[in-house]
Write a protein that binds this DNA or RNA. Structure first.
Lengths: 150, 150
DNA sequence: TCCATTTAGTGGTATATGCCACTTTCTTTG
DNA sequence: CAAAGAAAGTGGCATATACCACTAAATGGA
């Protein structure tokens, strides 16, 4: 009886979400670890890759992440030579981001591991259930909490 | 058109989860902020409260959180006088945790704010949908990734 | 009983993330 | 066009969270 605390679990949507995030994060992290990246880093490299030299603000917006948090998260990746930044030609306030050649190689490596993690997870919960879950999560991510509470 | 990156969103279950967690976390944090606590702290105080002077390991297990992470997270709460620890009578390795009187008052205050957040969120997505989502998240939290991949 | 092993926490280090104050660049206006 | 205001990032600070190496305490044998 190792989980006396679990029955009640929690009615808090936020806590439930965080708990699942920790759990799943550990799994994806473990699976992707052989590449030397964390799952968050793989995700960030991927986002940069498909973003077409995105501006930092665009990445932050896509990931629903604070701009300064993104800046911090980017640092290790820049330090390790996977990512580089450059000023936008038209607006000198804007800083764009791209993968370096090594970054591209590393992303490739990490994506293969990610794919395994993704497959293993979906084999456990079912592809449909996973898709439903992502849809629900994407809905939450799209909510506008500023809208007047009716 | 502020979300050119959203259409594709992500097929990654982990990334989707993290994104939703950031979003919802910001909302709950905002709502609970008047108490001076973060949503994570409110959740932790609550967990301690309902745990009946739980051991650190028990809390960590319930929250699916690394024990050392819990230790770190606990520090500000101890520093601010909301929580205190004491050695277990029978096993001196075990450190138990409880709320201080001020901690209890603060939790009370935070729970009222939490309740508002919870209500507002559930008014937006629907009570049933929220319950379904929590169930799905709890299932994930309960997965055993060590089981042989069949 | 004594040692090898397991269990519970701690501390250090590193990433993840957020807020705020501040600087630099546009943009909008009077 | 100059001044006010908005927009994009940076840096500092604080919490969230993980892993690892280490210590202390309990436990299970031989």
């Amino acid at each position: 009886m190792t989980q006396a605390a679990l029955p009640g679990l929690t009615l808090c949507n936020n806590a439930s979400l965080r708990r699942a995030t920790r759990k799943l994060g550990q799994f994806y992290d473990d699976m992707i670890a052989p590449s030397g990246l964390k799952a968050t880093q793989q995700g960030l490299l991927y986002q940069i890759h498909i973003g077409g030299e995105p501006a930092m603000g665009a990445i932050a917006e896509a990931l629903i992440m604070d701009l300064s948090a993104l800046g911090h998260t980017l640092k290790p990746l820049i330090r390790d030579g996977y990512v580089e930044t450059f000023a936008d030609k038209d607006d000198r306030r804007v800083k764009r981001v791209r993968l370096t050649p090594q970054g591209l190689v590393k992303l490739d490596e990490a994506m293969k591991l990610w794919s395994l993690a993704q497959q293993r997870f979906e084999a456990m919960v079912g592809k449909d259930e996973a898709a439903r879950l992502r849809a629900a999560l994407d809905d939450i991510a799209a909510l506008d909490f500023n809208a007047p509470p009716a």
